[in-house]
């Protein structure tokens, strides 16, 4: 086994040690320092898309996503400055304006990562205008449904379907504000030729966008513990 070098760095003024192949986020978590995340999920490749895990690094004016930034010797990281707090709050607000999130009538009420984030970042209200896009619900699958109104485009479902299940039934269509999740060649989910109905996408979805059909308001609880387990059992690197 090759030797792994150790780096020392500071996170929020605390001296911490890390393996050289670790990201800032991993090291922070190992040391009980909480950094908010949304698209990141242990067991899937990291994306750096939600921008919530941005941190400040001394000597650089650029904010860097901690989920994909490797540690470096002597690095001084701040995870919760006023500037970061402000940006995080705004980003969570932008999520709420983008689609039609109504916690009160959502299957994932009380079990939703977006809802929790709103609380975590101290979002008292959304001060940007809501966009109210006209979006559909795909309930053609026997057991699951996809409500685009609640999707945050974290692509966890796309990644789990590709990387873990190996079906790659899901992907993103289009780009920018008009992007949304599709199955196969955009036929309805129930007519997908490749879906194995494994339900992994439902479980990794941070919001109520993907849910089980028999669940009503606040009844949908996701479980993602299977993920690191599956990755480990398959002998993948992480």
């Amino acid at each position: 086994m090759s030797k792994v070098r150790i780096k020392t760095l500071k996170i929020d003024d605390r001296d911490v040690g890390a393996r050289e192949d670790q990201t800032i986020l991993e090291v922070a978590r190992d040391n009980g320092i909480h950094i908010p995340t949304l698209c990141q999920l242990d067991g899937l490749t990291n994306l750096g898309g939600c921008r919530l895990c941005l941190v400040e690094i001394k000597g650089s004016n650029k904010l860097l996503p901690s989920c994909v930034t490797a540690v470096e010797e002597g690095m001084e990281v701040s995870t919760n400055t006023e500037r970061l707090q402000k940006h995080r709050r705004s980003i969570v607000e932008l999520f709420f304006t983008e689609r039609n999130h109504v916690c009160a009538v959502c299957v994932s009420n009380n079990n939703c990562e977006l809802q929790n984030l709103a609380k975590q970042v101290g979002m008292t209200h959304v001060h940007f205008p809501y966009m109210y896009p006209a979006l559909s619900v795909d309930a053609t699958h026997d057991r699951f449904a996809l409500d685009h109104n609640r999707c945050v485009l974290c692509t966890r479902c796309v990644r789990v379907c590709d990387e873990i299940e190996g079906a790659h039934t899901l992907d993103v269509r289009g780009r920018g504000i008009e992007a949304y999740i599709i199955t196969d060649l955009e036929q309805v989910w129930g007519e997908s030729e490749t879906c194995t109905s494994c339900g992994k996408c439902v479980n990794v979805c941070p919001t109520g966008a993907l849910f089980e059909k028999n669940k009503s308001v606040a009844e949908m609880k996701k479980q993602t513990k299977f993920l690191p387990y599956l990755t480990m059992m398959r002998g993948a690197r992480r």
Partner: peptide, 18 residues
């Protein structure tokens, strides 16, 4: 005091907005 989600986010009443 914006009292509850409807006052704060327009919540359920806003579902007609599209």
């Amino acid at each position: 005091i914006a009292f509850g989600d409807c006052a704060i986010t327009a919540n359920v009443p806003s579902m007609r907005n599209r």
